[in-house]
Amino acid sequence: MSLKIKALTKSIWVFHLAASPCNNCDIEILDLLTPRFDIERFGIQLVGSVRHADAILVTGSMNRKARQRLKRVIAQAAKPCFVIAIGNCACSMEMFGKSYNQMECLDNVSEVHAYIAGCPPKPEAMIQGVVALIQAQLAALKK
């Protein structure tokens, strides 16, 4: 397992999973790929299939309909796989927590490895969050 985790920390391929977001975190994720931030220089790439992904970026507070799909998509990912909650909605459901169409927090559906707060988090914050996640995983391996 430790070898797999170590391999995961190199050039992370990410899959973007939108669970009823407001789009903003999502465009900021796409923004990371464009010239100013260009995270492909770190080997981070957006992939089309969750089966190729090393990390799943979840945005938005899940609604009833999205929750079923989200569970299935996360189950389809090759393990081990990091789940990263991006934005306040994914972290804590924020202002949508009281809505009739929201059921539960992301933590209850899947293990979450990193929380990146913000509405939306700035691209710099997302990069920092992923770096912190990698460092934490590597530190845990050394112990």
């Binding site: 938005g60 507070s61 309909k65 949508f96 809505s99 169409n101």
Partner: peptide
């Protein structure tokens, strides 16, 4: 329907100053 968050209903529970947010 993957994005329905019940915003209209939530708006009824907020004050006029909060609704724009």
């Amino acid at each position: 329907g993957y994005n329905h968050r019940g915003i209209e209903k939530l708006a009824e529970g907020l004050t006029y100053d909060q609704v724009p947010f």
